[in-house]
Write a protein that binds this DNA or RNA. Structure first.
Length: 457
RNA sequence: GGCUCGGUGGCAGAGUGGUCAUGCAGCGGAUUGCAAAUCCGUCAACGCCGGUUCGAUUCCGACCCGAGCCUCCA
C-alpha cells in the first residue's frame, strides 16, 4: 500500500498516516454554524477535506467522514431575533443552502452529518463526566471546564497556560476561576432555546458538540480531525481537553488545518465589505471553477482569492475540457485512480498544485496523442481528474451551457451554418462579420478539421 | 507582549543541497482564408547578511518585511 503523509498540527511535522483500524477510517471535519450563507473561505476546508476523503477512499475499504451541522449557537439565536423567525427556521434554511452550495463545488456527501440539537444528551453526558472527574465545576448556573485541571492543556496550539493568563486581554467573566476556563453548559433565558439538564434549563457551550458527537458517532479516538487554522485555538484545543479528560485516550491522531482565503491580500471581513459568498460567486462562475481555484494552492498556504485566480482556473478547465471534447467519441480506457500521478501527488500531504501539474501533463499528452493512444490517454486524464473532483461533466455541456448571453444554442447553430455557407462561397467578409457578432455575445468559434465548434466564454 | 506561519521569475504557485516544477502573461515558429484551439521553441526567480559545505533557493543563525491566532470566525 502506498504511503499517505500528512502534516499533523499536533507535532508540527509531516507524518506517515497509520490508521487506527485500516478497515474503518474515521475523519471528522468541523462544519458550518447555520446562521448565514457560507463564503468562499468556508468553502476551502470543505473542498480540501473532500479531496482528502477521496484519497482515503481510494486507499481504504471503508472511510467514515463526518461533518457536523451546528444548529444551536448564540449567533443563530441572534439571527433569528433579527429576522423575526424561529430558530429552527433559520437553521433549516441555511442548512439547506449550505448543502446546495457545497454540492455545487463537486463535493461528495459525507457519511454522516450530525446535528448538534440531535445530540444534546451526549453533551450532557460529556459535561457530567467532566464534573465527576474533577475537570469541571459549576458556577453561577454555568458548568465550566477548568483548564488548570489538565496538565497537557495547550499542547495542540503550542500555548502555555501561564502565557495565556498573562496575555489575557478580555475581562474575565465573574463565574470563571481562571481566564482560560470555558463553558460546557450555560443557562438559557426563558426566550432562548434550552434543554433540561442536571444544572437546569440551558444549552451547550460551543466546543461540547464536536467532542460529544465524535464519541457518539465515530468512537473515543479518531484518525483525522480537520478544520480551518483559526479553529486550532480555542476550539480544537478545548475539544481535545474535553474528550481526553472525559473519555481517556488521545482523541485524535492527526490534526489537519487549512490556511485562510484572503481577498486580494486582505482578510475577508464584514467591515472591509469583501466577503464573497459561494452563492454569489456561483452566479458568475461554475462551481467547478471555484473548486479548482481553491485547490490551486496548497491547503496549508494562504490562498489569495481574486478575479485573476478565478479566471486562471476557468482557463485551465477550459483547456482540459477542450482536450476531452476532441476525443468525446472515443471510449476511455479505464484507469485505476491509484495509478494516477495526481493521486501520488496528493499522497504527499495533499499536494494539489502538483496534482494539477499532472493534469496539465495528462492533457497535453492527450492533445498530441496518435489515434491509437487516445483511449488510454483519455483514461489517464480522467483518472487524474477524478481524484481531484474535477472534469466530471460532459465537455459539450461545459462549453455550451454557461451563462446565456442573449443567444441560445439553436441561434448560435443557425449563425454557424450561415457562416459555413459564406465560407463555402469564399465570402470571408460575411463569415468574419458573423463571427464578430458571436464574439460580442460571448461566443467563440473554432474551425476544426471536423467542422466548427463553439463555446461560451 | 506570547505563540505560529510565510517571503520563489510580470502574475499565480510547487519543490529541491549540485541539469526541468506547472499554469497564465510575453516573445518566436508550425497550423489557419483570417482567427480560435492545439503543438514546438524561448525569456525569466528563489527578501537581506553571515555560517556550514567542494557546492545553498534548499540546512543553521541574525536581520528586515508580511500574515494569522491569543476574543466569535474556515
Amino acid at each position: 500500500m502506498p504511503e499517505l503523509r500528512l502534516t499533523n498540527t499536533f507535532s508540527g511535522e509531516r507524518e506517515v498516516f497509520v490508521p487506527i483500524d485500516p478497515e474503518r477510517i474515521t475523519l471528522y471535519v468541523c462544519g458550518p454554524t447555520v446562521y448565514n450563507l457560507a463564503h468562499i473561505g468556508n468553502a476551502r476546508p470543505v473542498v480540501v477535506f473532500d479531496t482528502l476523503y477521496r484519497v482515503l477512499d481510494a486507499l481504504y475499504p471503508k472511510v467514515i467522514y463526518a461533518r457536523n451541522i451546528t444548529d444551536i449557537d448564540d449567533k443563530i439565536i441572534a439571527a433569528a431575533h433579527e429576522r423575526g423567525q424561529a430558530i429552527d427556521a433559520v437553521s433549516a434554511e441555511f442548512t439547506d443552502k449550505y448543502r446546495e452550495d457545497v454540492a455545487a463545488l463537486n463535493t461528495l456527501v459525507p457519511s454522516l452529518e450530525p446535528h448538534a440539537t440531535d445530540n444534546i444528551p451526549a453533551m450532557i453526558d460529556l459535561t457530567q463526566r467532566l464534573i465527576d472527574a474533577g475537570n469541571a465545576y459549576i458556577s453561577e448556573g454555568h458548568v465550566l471546564f477548568s483548564v488548570a485541571s489538565m496538565p497537557s492543556y495547550g499542547a495542540l496550539s503550542g500555548r502555555h497556560l501561564d502565557d495565556m493568563l498573562a496575555g489575557a486581554r478580555v475581562e474575565v467573566a465573574t463565574y470563571k476561576r481562571q481566564a482560560g476556563d470555558f463553558v460546557l453548559w450555560k443557562p438559557s433565558e426563558d426566550d432562548a432555546p434550552g434543554w433540561d439538564s442536571p444544572w437546569g434549563r440551558g444549552r451547550p457551550g460551543w466546543h461540547a458538540e464536536c467532542s460529544a458527537m465524535i464519541r457518539a458517532h465515530l468512537g473515543d479516538t479518531i484518525d483525522i480531525h480537520g478544520g480551518g487554522r483559526d479553529l486550532i485555538f480555542p476550539h480544537h484545543e478545548n475539544e481535545r481537553a474535553q474528550s481526553c479528560c472525559a473519555y481517556g485516550g488521545d482523541f485524535v491522531h492527526y490534526w489537519l488545518h487549512n490556511a485562510y482565503v484572503d481577498m486580494d491580500g486582505e482578510k475577508m471581513s464584514k467591515s472591509l465589505g469583501n466577503v464573497r459568498t459561494i452563492r454569489d460567486l456561483l452566479s458568475n462562475y461554475q462551481g467547478e471553477v471555484l473548486r479548482f481555484a481553491l485547490l490551486s494552492a496548497h491547503y496549508r498556504s494562504p490562498l489569495s482569492f481574486s478575479q485573476a485566480v478565478l479566471d486562471n482556473a476557468k482557463g485551465a478547465l477550459d483547456g482540459f475540457y477542450g482536450a476531452l471534447r476532441n476525443v468525446q467519441d472515443i471510449q476511455a480506457q479505464p484507469v485505476d485512480i491509484s495509478h494516477s500521478a495526481a493521486f501520488n501527488a496528493l499522497l504527499d500531504d495533499l499536494n494539489t498544485p502538483e496534482a494539477i501539474a499532472a493534469l496539465h501533463a495528462a492533457s497535453k499528452a492527450l492533445n498530441k496523442a496518435a489515434p491509437q493512444d487516445r483511449p488510454r490517454l483519455k483514461g489517464i486524464l480522467l483518472a487524474n481528474a477524478e481524484i481531484l473532483g474535477v472534469l466530471q461533466c460532459d465537455p459539450e455541456e461545459w462549453f455550451t451551457s454557461g451563462r446565456d448571453s442573449g443567444l441560445d444554442a439553436a441561434a448560435v447553430e443557425a449563425l454557424i451554418n450561415d457562416r459555413l455557407e459564406a465560407r463555402a462561397n469564399r465570402d470571408f467578409d460575411r463569415a468574419d462579420q458573423i463571427r464578430d457578432e458571436l464574439v460580442t455575445a460571448g461566443i467563440v468559434l473554432e474551425d476544426g478539421s471536423e467542422g466548427t465548434t463553439w463555446r461560451r466564454r
